[in-house]
Amino acid sequence: MNEQDIARGMQALALLDPDIKRAAAQLGPPPVRHRPKGFETFLSAIVSQQISTKAAQAILERVTALMPEVTASELLNIDDQALRDAGLSWRKIEYAKGLADAVNTGHFDIEGLDLLDDKAAIAAITSLRGFGRWSAEIYLMFSLKRPDIFPADDLAIQVALGRLKRLPDKPTPKQARDIVEHWAPWRSVGSLFLWHYYHGPPI
C-alpha cells in the first residue's frame, strides 16, 4: 500500500468509524510500510521470532552471508551447525530447513500466493511449521499488499484498539475482529493506523 492507498483508506475509515475520524484528526495518517515478496522475507520471519529487531537483523545477516544467493536450495546446502553458529536456535533451523524443503519440492509456492484469495493464502502459509496466522497475515499485508487484512493476534493492535474504543481492557482477538468488521474492505489500513496510534495516541 502506498501513500495514496492509505489516504483513500483513511478517508473511508473516517466515514465508517467516528473514533478513527477523531484520532486521525490529531495523529494524522500512518506511514507506509512494506516488505519484499519472496523466500528471504519468510526466512526473516523465522529468524525474528521472539527476539529483538536488532538481534534478528544481525543473525539474518550472518545467515545470508553463508549463501551466494538467498534461495531455498542454497539454504538446504548449509550444514545445520553452521546455521547454529550464525545464531539460529535448533528449532528455528528446523523451521528454516522445513520452509526451504517445502519451496524446493514445490509443496509451497511463494509466487503462487499472488493467485490465491486471502483465506487460501493464509492456509498455505500456516501449513508450514513455524508460521502461525499472525505471520501469514503480516506477509499478506506488507508483501502482497492485500487491503483487507486484520492481524487480531497482534498485542499492540489489541491494546491500541482498546484505547481507541475506550474499552476497560484490551479485546481478545475474536472481540477485536468483531469490533472492526465494519472497517472492511480497509482493515489493512485500519491495522496500520492502530500501530500508529499505539506508538503515539492522542491525549
Rank of each mutant, 00 (worst) to 15 (best):
R129E: 10
D114G: 14
H107V: 12
A121D: 07
D101F: 04
S143H: 07
D118N: 09
I157Q: 12
L113T: 10
L99G: 03
Y95S: 01
I125V: 11
S135T: 06
Y95K: 00
I110L: 13
L99H: 01
D154N: 14
T105E: 05
K92T: 00
S143R: 07
G112F: 04
A136K: 00
E111T: 12
L155Q: 14
G112A: 09
I110R: 02
R129Y: 08
A124Q: 11
D109K: 07
L115N: 13
T126Q: 04
S135Q: 00
G162V: 13
S135M: 03
I138W: 00
K145W: 05
D118A: 07
F142Q: 03
E137A: 04
L161M: 15
R146G: 15
A156G: 14
I157G: 09
M141G: 02
E111S: 14
I122Y: 00
R146H: 13
G98H: 00
A152L: 09
A96K: 02
G98M: 00
T105Y: 01
P147K: 08
I93N: 03
A120Q: 10
K119D: 13
A121V: 04
S127D: 10
R146N: 10
D117P: 08
S127I: 13
I149G: 03
G112S: 08
Q158G: 14
Y95R: 02
I122Q: 04
L113F: 07
V103H: 03
K97L: 08
E111I: 06
A136E: 02
A123I: 09
D118R: 02
D114A: 14
A160R: 09
S127H: 11
A102E: 07
I125Q: 02
A124S: 12
R133A: 09
D114P: 08
G106V: 15
I125A: 04
H107R: 12
D117A: 09
D117Q: 10
R133E: 09
K97N: 10
V159W: 05
D118I: 06
I125T: 04
I93K: 02
A152M: 11
D154A: 13
H107L: 10
G162H: 08
G130F: 01
W90R: 15
P147T: 11
D109G: 11
A160H: 11
A121P: 05
Q158M: 14
T105D: 03
R129I: 12
A100D: 04
S143K: 07
D109L: 09
A96I: 03
L113I: 08
I110P: 08
G132W: 02
K92V: 01
V103S: 05
I125F: 01
R91F: 06
D148H: 05
F150L: 11
F150E: 05
R146E: 12
I93C: 09
